[in-house]
Design a protein around this nucleic acid. Structure first.
Lengths: 201, 201
DNA sequence: TGCGCCATACCAACTAGTCGGTATGGTGGC
DNA sequence: GCCACCATACCGACTAGTTGGTATGGCGCA
């Protein structure tokens, strides 16, 4: 049984390098070097660079779906607790290097949304779908707390993702994760104010 | 008068193309074609592609600084009116193609924050400095409304930029400006809740 | 005449993708 | 046990096309 994880190593290297340098600037040989392989092996597993990107997108989708499915915030008792728990969880994972916790999908969507729709499209779906996993709890919380605004649960779900994605950009702009964390703090206060109506000091 | 605006046309083409395809994928000949020139002209005005990027960053900085300095929201009577006016203004300019209203700085920071710090650095400063132009009004509004949270005016100023930048990504992910507009609506409600303490229906 | 501006032709380096070949291990027949 | 056969995984040199950058010269104007 050879090290049959070569393909996975190539995919992981892609996720890491794209988040550090972007898609266009990531060379196939960079991916090979980080995975400890050569181009011959690369083209055994992938037809082309775009094929790698599509596979990396699917890899990312599977990874994030599983990662958030197993996260602890689902254990919250009520919908608002789970919602706030999600924000807290996103805050808690802002550790280590920026290339480890930033969003592969957000990078690709930002860079390749128009030039490579066949790659960015599934990742855009990943972001939107992930955001909408919160929609049911938002609706339940709206009902529970009698919140009736001129906005939809879906729009709030996507707003949460906007703050997450924007926080990553601000983290890059300021050179640290603190900016992303503080933005999530403001988001948490918004949710508290919206659903409880009380202003914590 | 010859078309002495060749340099400006090259810079404008750069802003447009980078927002559509990213920096690495934007070729010099693409920029020349969009500006209606050839490489001879390009290298008369710029030493290299990176030189172009630095000049485009300065161009963008000058453009945005003037653009927001002349915006109408500064005429608001109180600090909160100006703050909400800024959000409204950002919402009002979400028209036309995504390549026209998205942020050149955000694109570069996202893609080149680590690989090209000499280019992304000034643009990161541009975003942060632009965000902090709201800080004085936030501080004044905090004093006026007696708001004392465990957060700083600076963090809120940067949070506003995070929502703006994140809104652009969500607009790309959903294929329309509506996502960005709805996110700014949520941001506006957060500011209203924070400073007025009242919940609008 | 000289200079700013621009076009054409070209070069050198880089990179995506190809190709011939090697190593390993499984399988079925005997 | 052993061998022929084959599929998978991998290597590294090579090709072909792209792209940043250069060299040279033309053109209009002060």
């Amino acid at each position: 049984m050879a090290q049959n994880d070569s393909k996975a190593r190539l995919l992981d290297a892609t996720l890491h390098l794209v988040r550090a340098k972007g898609y266009a600037a990531t060379r196939i040989e960079d991916v090979c070097a980080e995975a400890g392989l050569t181009k011959g092996s690369f083209f055994h597993h992938f037809k082309s660079k775009d094929d790698l990107a599509r596979a990396a997108a699917a890899h990312w989708d599977a990874h994030t779906t599983g990662f958030f499915a197993e996260a602890p915030y689902h254990a919250g008792e009520g919908p608002l607790e789970r919602l706030l728990g999600y924000v807290d969880f996103r805050r808690s994972i802002l550790t280590g290097d920026l290339t480890e916790f930033t969003c592969f999908g957000g990078n690709i969507v930002q860079e390749a949304w128009r030039s490579h729709p066949e790659i960015s499209g599934p990742l855009a779906d990943n972001i939107v779908t992930h955001g909408k996993t919160l929609q049911a709890d938002i609706e339940a919380a709206m009902a529970q707390y009698g919140v009736k605004g001129d906005w939809t649960a879906e729009s709030l779900a996507l707003h949460i993702q906007a703050v997450v994605q924007g926080g990553f950009i601000m983290a890059k702009a300021t050179g640290g994760a603190a900016a992303a964390a503080q933005s999530l703090d403001h988001l948490r206060r918004y949710l508290e104010l919206t659903f409880s109506g009380t202003k914590p000091s």
